[in-house]
Computed example of a mutant assay.
Amino acid sequence: MSRWTRPAADAGLAALVGILVGIAMSVATEPALGTRPPDAIAYGLAAVIGGVLLVRRRSPLGVLLVTAACLLLYYRLEYPGITPAVPLAVALYTAASRGLLVWSLGIAALFVVLGLTVRPLHLGEPILPVLTDMAAQAGLLLAVVLLGETLRGRRVRLAEADERLALVEAGQEREAARRAAEERLRIAGEIHDVLSHTITGITIQAALADEVLDNRPADARTALRAIRTAAGEATAELRAALGLLRTDDGEPPPRVPAPGLGQVGELTGQARSAGLEATVIVRGEARRLPPAVDLAAFRVVQESVTNTIRHANARTVRITLAYEPDALEVEVVDDGRPREERGRRGDEHPEAGVTPGYGLSGMGERASSLGGTLTAAPLPGGGFSVLVRMPTGDPA
């Protein structure tokens, strides 16, 4: 109901109740002596009983008390008796529907008790007709109160249902935002891994091409081809990662094969191009891994080799892939100079500083997201070790 129709409805209801109370007063008959016919005061009380309903939504208890007081005053002035249900019904219903059940029952009980005591004792009416009449009026008053209470309970249940629905929707929005944030972090990690590794390789190959361009142009061309190949592969991976951000709902992202341990040979080749002696050791029987584990293991090796090239000043790097029945263990070890001999070159590699940066934290997040663990620490005699262990499930 709108803000315009609600006052109009209240005004119509107030007028109707006032008219009905006035009619009840005009047709009432009283067998006892001493009563006086309704006059201006009586009809004025009827007007007050109806008019006070205009504010029943703002002050339901006040309306109920004023209505009861007017009715009591009407009886006290010894006008012909009328049933209390007509003047009290709307006020009782409104109060009960606003949660004032005790007040509503109390006012209704007050008039029932007064009818059961005053009519036989003061007016001399026979007790049996009085009991019958007051039982009917009590039932009517109780029905009005229960109707208001039922409406209030229904309104409360609807409000609770709306609140639960709002909480569910808010939870869904938070979950969607959390998943979106996780996806953004995952994409950021992919972009970081691709760019860090590719730029390092391009830098090394570019430096090599610059050194041999005059004396060994064939080697320079080889380095430039390696740069072109690395840039092309990085472009494809970046396009796939960024495509996830640009893809509209329902539109499939560009399909680019995710890298895996099958490409570790390319990493060792790039490490050798940078002047490192790179070896790969496989323990156990190599097998097909879950895609997420395969990708995470490759990224760990890629990030570790990149950090070794950029920061470790090492001569060798050893990559160990241990296939266990239900887990994969990957270890990357270099022989870089001891920590105390190096300057602080950044935070990508803990050997170059005390706080791990995006590289190590990204590797740790990849491992933990798959239920694995990552350990990264300098070696006592020099060098650095990165060890990650991830469950792969039953190979069967």
Rank of each mutant, 00 (worst) to 15 (best):
Val112Ile: 12
Ser196Ala: 02
Leu328Arg: 08
Thr247Lys: 15
Glu331Leu: 10
Arg186Gln: 14
Gly44Lys: 11
Ala188Ile: 12
Arg239Ile: 04
Gly383Ser: 10
Leu360Lys: 08
Leu360Pro: 02
Tyr74Pro: 04
Arg179Lys: 15
Val212His: 00
Leu92Gly: 10
Asp335Leu: 13
Ala209Gly: 09
Trp4Gln: 14
Asp162Asn: 07
Ala207Trp: 00
Val354Glu: 15
Arg36Val: 15
Val388Asn: 00
Val66Arg: 01
Thr268Met: 01
Val144Lys: 01
Ala85Ser: 13
Leu387Gln: 00
Pro84Ile: 05
Leu61Ala: 15
Ala109Tyr: 03
Gly81Gln: 06
Pro254Ser: 04
Glu175Ala: 14
Pro356Asn: 12
Val17Met: 14
Ala28Asn: 09
Cys70Leu: 04
Ala28Gln: 07
Glu285Ser: 06
Val301Ala: 10
Glu340Arg: 10
Leu142Asp: 06
Gln270Tyr: 03
Leu105Lys: 06
Leu45His: 02
Pro31Phe: 01
Glu125Tyr: 01
Leu123Gln: 13
Asp10Met: 11
Met363His: 01
Pro252Lys: 08
Leu151Asn: 11
Thr200His: 01
Arg186Tyr: 15
Arg344Gly: 12
Glu237Met: 12
Ala188Arg: 14
Gly383Glu: 09
Val256Arg: 10
Gln137Glu: 09
Ala188Thr: 15
Tyr323Arg: 03
Pro395Trp: 10
Tyr93Asp: 06
Gly50Gln: 08
Ala231Pro: 15
Gly81Met: 06
Ala170Lys: 06
Glu303Pro: 00
Ala28Gly: 02
Ile199Ser: 11
Ala236Phe: 15
Gly232Lys: 08
Leu261Thr: 03
Val48Pro: 12
Ala240Ile: 03
Gly250Asp: 07
Glu233Phe: 03
Val333Ser: 06
Glu237Ala: 08
Asp219Asn: 13
Ser273Asp: 03
Ala176Glu: 11
